[in-house]
């Protein structure tokens, strides 16, 4: 990052975003946060329910961690996204039907986006045309 000239925060963020499955990782992490927000049961009660009670916190916590890992270590995105989708599905059983379905859907969609992401693609046709127009005149 440091060797490139500073062009302001927005283009820098755009560049950073273009090198990782940004929306995939973000959705997966946000899904985990949503599930955690619906949990909030006191630890004493959770421990009484037993192993499944602990898993109720473990799985959404893992979703957050995996989402952040997709963002900050995109090279390993295949492993993170496959684990992420399995963990997201697991929250259906352990954590309030996957945060009342919302967090589960966020996690699954985010994992799929991260899985389907590829670096260094040809720009979309629409963008290419715009770039050509910018160069032509």
């Amino acid at each position: 990052m440091s060797e490139r000239p500073r062009r302001g925060l927005r283009p820098a963020f755009r560049g950073w975003r273009s090198r990782r499955p940004f929306w995939g990782g973000l959705l997966l992490a946000l899904g985990g946060v949503e599930v955690l927000l619906t949990m909030r049961a006191s630890l004493k009660v959770v421990l009484h329910v037993g192993m499944q009670g602990v898993a109720g916190y473990l799985l959404p916590g893992l979703m957050v961690v995996l989402g952040l890992l997709v963002l900050f270590n995109p090279a390993q995105r295949l492993f993170y996204s496959i684990t992420g989708v399995l963990v997201s599905l697991g929250t259906w059983m352990t954590s309030n039907l996957g945060g009342f379905l919302l967090g589960l859907l966020c996690g699954v969609v985010g994992s799929c986006l991260a899985f389907g992401w590829l670096p260094d693609q040809e720009p979309r046709r629409r963008l290419r045309r715009r770039a050509a127009k910018a160069v032509a005149p």
Binding site: S18, R19, R20, P21, W23, G24, S81, I82, V85, S111, C112, L113, F115, G116, W117, L118, P119, D120, Q121, E122, P123, R124, L127, R128, A131
Partner: peptide, 14 residues
Amino acid sequence: QRRGRVRLRRAAVM
């Protein structure tokens, strides 16, 4: 202009 993006067919695999 070359940036990463989601390939739909690949995402559909999952």
